[in-house]
Design a binder for these strands. Sequence first.
RNA 1: GGCCCCAUCGUCUAGUGGCCUAGGACGUCAGGUUCUCAUCCUGAAGAUCCCCGGUUCGAAUCCGGGUGGGGUCACCA
Length: 482
Amino acid sequence: MTATSKTKTVRTRIAPSPTGLAHVATGYIALFNYAFAHQHGGQFIIRIEDTDRARFVEGAEQVIYDSLKWLGIPHAEGVDIGGPYAPYKQSERLDIYKKYAEELIKKGHAYYCFCTSAELETMRNAQQKAGKLPMYDGRCKQLDPKVAQERAQKEKHVIRLHMPDEGKTEWEDLIRGHIEFENALVDDQVLIKSDGFPTYHLAVVVDDYLMKITHVMRGEEWISSTPKHIALYTMFGWEIPQFAHMPLLRNPDHSKLSKRKNDVSLISYMKKGYLPEALVNFLCLLGWSHPEHEEVFDLQNFLKHYAIDRMQKTAPVFDFNKLNWMNGLYIREKLSAAELKKRLEPFLPSDFPKKKFDTILPLIRDRLVLLADVESLTDFFYRDIVVDKKALQFKKADDALIAQQLLSSIEALKKTDWTLQSIEAVLRSLQEKNDWNKGQYFMLLRIVVTGKTATPPLFETIEVLGKEKTFQRLEKARSLFA
RNA sequence: GGCCCCAUCGUCUAGUGGCCUAGGACGUCAGGUUCUCAUCCUGAAGAUCCCCGGUUCGAAUCCGGGUGGGGUCACCA
């Protein structure tokens, strides 16, 4: 690192494309970019790379901001909030790229190419047949610059990078150390497409330079195109930023995390009821470990302890088991009751009795893994249940006994003042007095009043369910055994 | 296939030459608490540190070679 770069303000960025819902990997990369900038007192910004018109998705850009906001990762500059290097959207910077591409042509580092996609395909097929690697053969490089210049006025064309044919390109990756490539093996990348839009490779370099990005932290899938980027910085005579290639998130089958095999949009995590705090905590632990070996910590703690030298190079598998555990943990231990109530609000079904929220919540808190579980855990409190007679018939009791147990329970409950204490006292003494099998008897009542075999504790459930519904369900069950 | 990256329990990881007969977490299994489930508590199984060489008094840790996995080879990012 040079003396000047030490004094330079650290600036990092993410450069997502609005081609769909924001990917969890985008959040992952954003998190580490943010932490790095924060640690160095610098800025983390968002730039929208919308140079691919074919894949552009309306509204996708807003989803990116919403998703990162949900995660709690703030950016210092961006299309939505502006900043000193605006515009932050590449489609609004076309003139800039064109100007720099032309500069490259003048310097002899780029050239016009008039090959059609059909020609290129034929060329690649031939190369593959011959057992050679598919690469642009540079046929348009031979064109006389003046002739090419003239043809470019009226013919459809692209501008290609004239990659050096010899030597090698190398850099010290902040995460991986020394990496080098033979220049001869690097393709003459298209820089400006025939529609006048730049490709990623030109745009990213120009913008990172103009926006004073000092550290490029991105996924490892970019390693093999980094030589092209470094070549561009060199040709322009610009200082090359530091590169840090983060490990790729993987599917359980070890392939690159994809929406084919998993739910990967940040919005889908939100909708399922993952807490952003839990997801962030989980993400922090992929490829990075806490210096004090903590597993559960918040974003502030991460920001305080983050250091790039604790980054792992291995691509981690995204383990939903651990994420779910983390989410349940945050629900039951990290959120206050009031906060949990607030978070649960959007997940309550329309027929949920909000008046009973405070009494129901403690009964399900330890049982929630996802916020969206609230419905399946509470539905019997406010929806009609269906109880099958067979479900009530256990080996340990015949029909007559069951009928007796139901009748006695009804009578006993009628004598209570419907407090938890009295409900429990009355039912327990009934069970003890008759020496009924504890498991059978309480399970009978459980199924009768909830329709389920797994519920919150029975007495609390009855108390919250209320007199009316409890008696109604007990009577209905009794009628099955009449 | 070429190039590049990577390699510690099923998974996330600790480990930077002796403290490692490899530690923690998730998951799994067993037991305890208990009216079920969940929580909680206790315990267990689970890694010849991918393999083979080398350096060294000593290697999971350094070096080389294999093997395996992944990424990338577009007018997509």
